[in-house]
Amino acid sequence: MSKTHVTAKVNGDAVEFLCDPRETLLDVLRDRLGLTGAKEGCGTGDCGACSVTVDGRLVCSCLMLGVEAEGKEIGTVEGIADGETLHPLQKKFIEYAALQCGICTPGILIAAKSLLEKNPDPTETEVRYWLAGNLCRCTGYDKIIRAVMDTAAEMREAS
C-alpha cells in the first residue's frame, strides 16, 4: 500500500511525513512525529483526549486523517507553553489540582485555551458545555471548571 507525503506545521515547526491514508492525524502525531502529548482515549471522537487545533480550529485528531493535514497548522499541548513560561491555564491546572491522573489534561488544556481565545469571559455553563466533549473520570470536573474560570479572570485582568 503506497504512502502519501504530507507537509504541515506543528506548533510552528515545519514537518513532513509519509503516512498511510488510513492513519489518523493522532496516529501521525504520536507514532510518526513523536508527539505523544495528544492521547487516544477512544479513537471515535467521544472523549476529547486527542484534542488539537488545526488552523486554529479545535478538533479531535482521531477524527482527522493524517493526509488531511497537508498545508495545515497543527497546535498540540506540546506547543502551548512559551519556552519555560507556562501558559496561564497550565499554571492554574497545577495550582487547582485540576488533574489527577492527567490523561485527559492535554486535551482539556487545548480545548480550554481555544475557548478562552474565543470567549475571554465564559460563564460556568459555557465552560461546562464547551468542555463536554472532554471526558475526565478522576475529578468530577469541579476543579477543572474552577481552574478555567479563574484563568479567564486572571487573563482578563492582565490584558
Partner: peptide, 16 residues
C-alpha cells in the same frame, strides 16, 4: 504536585 508540570505539558509518559 510533582508530576504537575509533566502532565500539563504533555511530557508525562503513559502506557501507550
Amino acid at each position: 504536585r510533582p508530576d504537575g508540570l509533566d502532565k500539563v505539558t504533555g511530557r508525562a509518559k503513559f502506557g501507550a
